[in-house]
């Protein structure tokens, strides 16, 4: 099957990697749980950040693991994997993945 053409510019690929539609919810759950547990505002915000970073890292790892699969066939149309479709990111192993 033919390889898909790159569809993301580098900034766009970075933005897509953040998966804000999912990671914000995960971060909110982590932060809300911390606040509910009596951690206070500052510590809860730090835990929100920790949860968000872990979620972004997790989704990026998933993208990285599937970068070769997601470049071909129907998966290329479905997954919108920036690590599969942005050649510069693939070359550099960008985001230190």
């Amino acid at each position: 099957m033919p390889e898909s053409k790159p569809r993301f510019s580098k900034p766009m690929a970075f933005f897509w990697l953040l998966r804000l539609n999912r990671t914000v919810m995960v971060a909110t759950i982590t932060g809300a749980a911390a606040f509910t547990a009596g951690a206070g505002v500052a510590r809860s915000l730090w835990m929100t950040l920790a949860g968000w970073c872990l979620a972004v890292g997790g989704f990026s790892l998933d993208f990285y693991a599937d970068r070769d699969l997601d470049i071909r066939g129907p998966r290329a149309e479905i997954r919108h994997n920036p690590l599969a479709t942005a050649p510069s990111l693939r070359r550099q192993g960008w985001l230190s993945l």
Binding site: G31, A33, A34, T36, S44
Partner: peptide, 23 residues
Amino acid sequence: LQALYALVGAEAGRLSLGLGLLA
């Protein structure tokens, strides 16, 4: 994963029965 994210947050304070139920 969702339950564990809630537990990660809860560990910043005091893990309680209510938070366990919410996880």
